[in-house]
Design a protein around this nucleic acid. Structure first.
Lengths: 116, 116
DNA sequence: AAAATTAGTATCTTTAAGGATACCAAATTG
DNA sequence: CAATTTGGTATCCTTAAAGATACTAATTTT
């Protein structure tokens, strides 16, 4: 029990970071924060992502219920991607990650100045 | 300007996720949340991480000022790793990542039940 | 009806992360 | 002073993520 809890301490973090880690998954979630987007819009927004990668990551996020893909009933060419309810519960974390990244950048710049 | 901001939207998220992404970096930060730890303690806590990987990731986190390594002045064999000030500003995010991972898990379990 | 757009596939290749295993010098403990 | 512990290195290897490039069927626009 003690041992298991010890593991869970970091295993949950590993799980979360697998879901939205890598180069694109978190970015896709961020891009969908404001509003639903079409495949092509996402691709433009996330430049230089490739079609292949975008497709793969969208499928992954869909399978893990973080996003919803609405495929047009008659028009197969119209697909709209948006956060699922659960996915949008991740939005606050995205904002904090951004803020933290910005803070980190300024700190690293200060350090660089100091080190010279 | 407009274009640049568009990019920053997700670039910050990418940056943050590079800093603490991958299999181990976030986990190491999580393991150091409660208290400073020695190399060997970290290794036990993060089992099954290898020495090689732990060393590499600790160096990375140190270079990026997320952790501090205190190397004993006379005893070279005593090294203590802890969050830097900046690193500990990441602790709240770790907690939220954990909570979110747990929520995600329960949601996926529900979905599995439903899909059968 | 021709041209362009949408939402992808299909291959092939590169790169990076990380594991497996063996080894090690300095310090500490018994 | 011998054994063990600490905090790592050094090599070699596997796997997964992602890029490059070319292609496409269905739809929409002109």
């Amino acid at each position: 029990m003690k041992n298991k809890e010890k593991h869970l301490l970091y295993r949950d973090v590993q799980d979360a970071l697998e879901l939205i880690g890598g180069r694109w998954r978190g970015a896709i979630m961020a891009s969908l924060c404001n509003d639903p987007k079409r495949f092509t819009e996402l691709k433009k927004d996330l430049e230089p992502i490739t079609s292949r990668t975008l497709t793969k990551e969208l499928r992954y996020l869909e399978q893990n219920r973080l996003i919803i893909a609405v495929r047009g009933s008659q028009a197969k060419n119209a697909v709209c991607y948006s956060h699922s309810e659960h996915g949008s519960s991740f939005a606050p974390l995205i904002l904090q990650l951004r803020e933290w990244a910005i803070k980190h950048r300024t700190i690293m710049l200060e350090v660089l100045k100091f080190d010279q």
